[in-house]
């Protein structure tokens, strides 16, 4: 990426401490710095408690940070509450229940997502034109959801809900897409399908993306850049050709060199094979 380009996302010396002043005090983000350039698809790995999710939540504004600044496309959003930052950010969560309203129809969920970053007025919540567009988009997912637009989302499987959430997150092209282990709760086959959809959506829209995964192979396979976190900082940052040549063994070695310890995530170890 050219140096003079404004980063799409810039985390500058971000600090977040949970339970400050108690015995449980935990510095989740420790002067974290990270710049994402337009079109970067960054996969994030790291052990348990490395601060991966905290980084995403700090970016999304789920909680106020204790220090540092968050810039999105050059705008300082550090003080903006979550719902206002949502204008720039699309999110998919680990829990398939979290990203959709179960008791509402598929098309109602999409209509709500279509108004992300816009004023919600007393106009009717969904237009005929939108219905046609949603139908087309759903058919691209290849899950048969286009014929069930008025079904309640609660009736969908976890994989279908994640695919729908992904569509909702990217409906209004976000400046940044945050994926927080969005395939972790799915069975391997469904996870692969959702990842495939993710890859398609991200590349078609050239989205700047941060994707946390506990699967090292997925982290290597997807995206143009890989970062590894440890104790609230980025300890490994590889991109381009160097990343393409990575193996799981390389990653484990990089990790122990950077952190001075063994990679401490059972799930990651298991999925590393």
């Amino acid at each position: 990426m050219p140096e003079n380009n404004t980063p799409m996302l810039s985390l500058k010396n971000v600090v977040k401490t949970f339970y400050a002043g108690t015995v449980n005090e935990k510095t989740a983000l420790n002067n974290l710095c990270l710049d994402l350039y337009p079109g970067d698809f960054v996969t994030v790995i790291g052990g348990n408690g490395a601060g991966k999710s905290t980084m995403l939540n700090a970016t999304a504004g789920v909680f106020p940070i204790d220090g540092g600044d968050v810039f999105i496309d050059g705008v300082n959003v550090t003080k903006l509450p979550e719902h206002k930052r949502a204008k720039y950010i699309g999110r998919v969560f680990q829990d398939p229940m979290m990203g959709t309203a179960a008791n509402m129809q598929i098309e109602e969920n999409l209509a709500i997502a279509a108004r992300r970053g816009k004023k919600r007025t007393l106009r009717w919540s969904i237009t005929q034109q939108e219905r046609a567009e949603f139908k087309k988009m759903l058919s691209i997912l290849g899950l048969g959801l286009e014929d069930r637009m008025t079904a309640k989302v609660g009736l969908l499987s976890g994989g279908q809900r994640q695919a729908l959430t992904l569509l909702m997150a990217t409906l209004n092209r976000p400046k940044i897409l945050l994926l927080d282990e969005h395939t972790a709760a799915l069975d391997p086959k469904t996870a692969a399908k959702v990842l495939e959809i993710t890859e398609k959506v991200v590349s078609e829209n050239k989205l700047t993306t941060l994707m946390i995964t506990h699967n090292m192979k997925d982290a290597i396979k997807h995206g143009n850049r890989l970062i590894m976190m440890h104790e609230g900082r980025v300890v490994v940052d590889v991109s381009g050709e160097e990343k393409q040549k990575l193996t799981v063994e390389d990653l484990l070695m990089l990790f122990s060199r950077a952190s001075g310890s063994e990679f401490a995530s059972d799930r990651a170890m298991l999925s590393a094979e």
Partner: peptide
Amino acid sequence: GTELGASIRATGINENMCRAQGIDT
């Protein structure tokens, strides 16, 4: 049935999703 009304309904179902979709819950 309006945009505002739909966001109120969604708030009662999933606040987390609402905030992620830019609704001031």
